Amino acid sequence: MSFNLRSVALAAAVLLFGAAAHAAPVVKGPEHGTLIIAGGGKLGPEILGRFINLAGGPSAEIVVIPTAGGEAKYGPDCDCLKIFKELGATHLTILHTTDRKEADSEAFVAPLKRAKAVWFVGGRQWHLVDSYLSTRTETEIHNLLARGGVAGGTSAGASIQASYMVRGAKAGNEVLMAPGYEQGFGLITGAGVDQHVTARHREGDLDALVKAHPDLLGIGIDQSTAIEVKRDSFKVLGAGHVFIHDGKEQPNGGHYYLLGAGDGFDLTTLTSTAKR
């Protein structure tokens, strides 16, 4: 029997490429620090209180970024501060600009260099991209985590934390994947994060994301629910569910399964460590 070495090599390459293309996502939380990624709606003390505790308590310096809300200016009376004040937080700083040059300045990022925590308010993700992506502001957010701090956010402030940003289209949040607005801050990598899942009937939406991008894990989060992410795992906080989209067929007919409050998830093995 004779062998065509070129054909054998080509077939091997195709097999290797196919295996690589369908390899499991590599998902990682921050090397240091913690993320609180919330699905919108009313957030209870089990979520916001946890965020404040991770920051170091009510006296910790917390930066609040309301830019996703789309307003030109935010003052000290901003509603975005109310939820933290109600839980006793006393050192709150609003950081906001629509000017990328300002966002890239040393003066603007000074509060982030002092802070123990940063919170991204909800709204539309693309505002955060237009203002902060690839600026010193984004760099200092990563640096804050490297110091062992905590970054959190809800709704748009959840999706921006992932390496793949869903629903970034300026045309509307019905568009799941929007060319030009698909890159988030990458605080958690190898994943895309959706929010308001049950309230907006988005249960199966991330199936399309993991089909188009099999190198990503889809994480959908209900309102009043959050995940607390460390380097190689997360746990679920709050009242609703977290939807894990891994591309594998599930009994529900989709490619997702549910986690509830207290459940954990191993980012290395991509398996749940459910409490029940």
Rank of each mutant, 00 (worst) to 15 (best):
M1N: 09
M1Y: 11
S2W: 10
L5C: 00
R6T: 13
L15A: 15
A23F: 07
A24C: 00
P25M: 11
K28Y: 04
G33Y: 13
L35A: 10
G39P: 13
G40I: 11
G44E: 15
G56R: 12
G57E: 07
V64S: 01
G69Q: 12
L81S: 06
L81D: 06
K85H: 09
T93S: 14
H96D: 05
R100S: 13
A107M: 03
F108S: 04
F108T: 01
K116G: 09
A117F: 11
F120G: 07
G123F: 04
Q125M: 03
V129M: 07
D130E: 14
L144Q: 06
G148T: 06
V150N: 08
A156Y: 10
A158F: 08
M165F: 12
A171C: 00
V175P: 09
P179G: 13
F185I: 01
G186Q: 12
L187G: 11
H196R: 08
A199P: 00
A199Q: 14
R200M: 12
H201M: 07
E203W: 01
D205G: 00
A208V: 05
V210K: 07
A212G: 03
D215Y: 04
L217T: 03
I221T: 03
I221Y: 03
I221N: 02
D222M: 04
A226K: 09
E228T: 06
R231E: 15
R231F: 01
R231M: 02
A239V: 10
I244Y: 06
D246T: 06
D246I: 07
G247S: 07
G247F: 09
E249M: 12
P251K: 07
N252G: 03
H255E: 13
Y256I: 03
Y256D: 01
Y257H: 15
G260R: 14
G260M: 06
G260I: 05
S272R: 10
T273S: 15
A274I: 02
R276E: 05
